[in-house]
Amino acid sequence: MNTVAMNIRVDKNLKEQATELYNDLGLSLSSAINMFLRQSVRDNGFPFKPQRTKRKSEIELAVEEADQLMKDPNAKTYNNLQELWDEIGI
């Protein structure tokens, strides 16, 4: 196999994190990059589906938390607003 050196610029922190990750998986960063490139060539494109991730708003997160609490049989409940206020000291 004929190899060539390749220079790329990447954020230092990202490189450190990726190196640690791939070392934990038993690979060097160079081997991981080679795997990515080989799979890209095999797939004739990215070896994964690139897509934007939608971040959830605070309201969406609060609704999810409320749904989880409603399903939790161990969640604290109150019979009226005064019980809640007494609990939190208002």
Rank of each mutant, 00 (worst) to 15 (best):
M1R: 15
M1F: 08
N2P: 10
N2H: 07
A5W: 02
M6V: 08
N7D: 13
R9Y: 07
N13Y: 10
K15V: 10
E16R: 00
E16G: 07
E16T: 06
Q17K: 11
A18W: 01
A18C: 04
A18S: 09
E20S: 07
E20N: 11
E20D: 13
Y22G: 01
N23F: 05
N23G: 05
D24F: 12
L25K: 06
L25Q: 04
G26Y: 08
S28I: 12
L29R: 00
I33W: 03
N34F: 00
N34E: 15
R38T: 14
R38C: 08
V41S: 12
D43T: 08
N44M: 08
G45N: 15
P47F: 12
F48S: 07
K49M: 07
Q51R: 15
Q51C: 12
R52C: 02
K54Q: 11
R55Q: 03
L61P: 05
A62N: 08
A62K: 14
A62R: 12
A62H: 09
V63H: 01
V63G: 00
A66H: 01
D67V: 10
Q68Y: 04
Q68G: 05
K71L: 05
D72E: 06
D72G: 03
N74K: 15
A75K: 01
Y78Q: 09
Y78P: 04
N79T: 13
N79K: 10
L81V: 05
L81H: 04
L81A: 05
Q82R: 13
E83I: 13
D86W: 06
D86M: 11
E87Q: 09
E87M: 00
I88R: 11
I88M: 02
I88V: 15
I88Q: 01
G89S: 03
